[in-house]
Amino acid sequence: MNLFLSVEVLSESTLRDVVDLMVRLVEAAGALIIFLGAVWAFGRFLLVGVRGGGVGREFNKIRLSLGRFLALGLEFQLAGDVLRTAIAPSFTEIGQLAAIAAIRTALNYFLSREIAEERAEIERERHKEADDIRPRAESA
């Protein structure tokens, strides 16, 4: 009786459909975040480029934000991969999933390292500027 109920309540095809829908939603959210990040960064690059003045640091800041968008989108896509493992039926699909998940995980790792390095560089520049200003203020 129990077995019959469990089959009726959640059949394999229903589970497959539900997980498939969730995977699509989560992956679409990830793709949307990546695309919005690219559009935002593009707009900022144009704006800063046209305005001019201290562009080097501004460009670094925009790249840092774009990197954050990419990392966030990747997290969503990795979540989709994890969900997909629940229903992967064949070895070919599992292999493909493993390859994509490996690429995304590696990229996420490198991106977070790059973000940390960029942030450290911006901090260094800020400290350098503060050190340059301080002696001038003291001598005046």
């Binding site: 793709a31 790249r63 990419l70 896509q77 990229l107």
Partner: peptide, 9 residues
């Protein structure tokens, strides 16, 4: 950076 974003999409 942008090419990576395109690759991810």
């Amino acid at each position: 950076d942008f090419l990576t974003a395109a690759g991810l999409l």
